[in-house]
Design a protein around this nucleic acid. Structure first.
Lengths: 191, 191
DNA sequence: ATGACTATAATTAGTTT
DNA sequence: TAAACTAATTATAGTCA
């Protein structure tokens, strides 16, 4: 067998695929994982390059939630929902109809559960909550170290590319991200 | 000038760019338009190929909203928001303590088992919840893995990378699309 | 602003380990 | 089960019509 044939056999490269539901469950799962990462990366690049606010929410076929947001999912969705349901000086009739048809009453008025009112906490509660977050951060850090064998550079690039993993992350999204991390890393022994 | 040089001048091809805010306003605008389309196309392909539910919301730097959703933005955001903020028939967030949560069967069946009002927790409850959170990691993940794939309704042919521009558009998304159109055409007097 | 073009960068389907 | 690999496909920065 000549070298060309050998190389051919080793890897046929990417094949053009039709955009329709992938039949084989295993392939579908792998594809979902790869493309979800790709989608979030694209979303991140768009927000950074163009200064845009982007939110992406994905449910896997199994019902697992994934999300990306810059500056945060909470921020973008709030803006979006207020846009389509809130009163507007210039778009009043249209938005009124929109609010009626979409029936966003629950959607808009219900407070997000992560709107934790820090001011209402006592000192002890605040300290405890802070401790709680720090401990959770340790878990996530360990998980990341165990799960990610990438070069530090690549890891840092990835972290930079995903704003919800940055230290500047708001409290609300940090917690969401943390839960996502935990659910994504079942094999990690916490603390 | 020889042909090679001419060809060079005509198109230098794509250049590698650093992921940071594009300084020149015009370039940023063009990039936004192109990449927004690319993002929505990726989102569409992900939902079709893998039977996933995907929503993406983008605000341009000028504040114009764009969105993509399969089966609809409304559907995905409702699912997302209800899962993270919605009440449970059996779990009362304000009064549920961790002991009750631990023993609750539904907990492992719901992907959003963290449907808990942290704000209402005292120190002890927070600590207990932390412990519970970590202990239940494996259980929850296993439960998630056991979830059966839903009938992939998303397999149905998607009209386009931008379904909200289609006539078959659902009522809710039609209004969202309408709003988008209106905001894209400030010169047109919105009804 | 909008679309077409081109060459390069980036993504990813299939394979191997 | 997952990670690395390879190469074909896809996305897109820059340019021009």
């Amino acid at each position: 067998m000549n070298p060309v044939e050998v190389k051919k056999r080793i890897c046929e490269g990417r094949k053009k695929i039709e955009i329709k539901l992938i039949e084989k469950e295993e392939n579908r799962q792998v594809c979902f994982s790869k493309r979800r990462q790709g989608l979030f990366k694209k979303a991140s690049e768009l927000s950074i390059l163009c200064g845009a606010e982007v939110a992406a929410v994905v449910f896997s076929p199994a019902g697992k939630p994934y999300f990306f947001g810059n500056p945060s999912v909470d921020h973008v969705l709030r803006r979006f929902l207020s846009n389509i349901s809130g009163p507007s000086d210039t778009l009043s009739p249209a938005t009124t109809n929109c609010a009626e048809l979409v029936n966003h009453d629950q959607l808009v008025q219900k407070p997000f559960w992560w709107d934790i009112d820090l001011h209402s906490m006592g000192v002890d509660e605040l300290r405890e909550y802070e401790k709680f977050l720090l401990e959770q951060q340790t878990v996530v850090t360990q998980a990341a170290q165990q799960c990610c064998f990438e070069a530090p550079e690549a890891a840092m690039e990835q972290i930079d590319a995903l704003p919800h993993t940055s230290p500047e992350l708001g409290e609300a999204d940090y917690f969401l991200w943390l839960l996502q991390e935990i659910m994504d890393s079942p094999d990690i022994d916490p603390i």
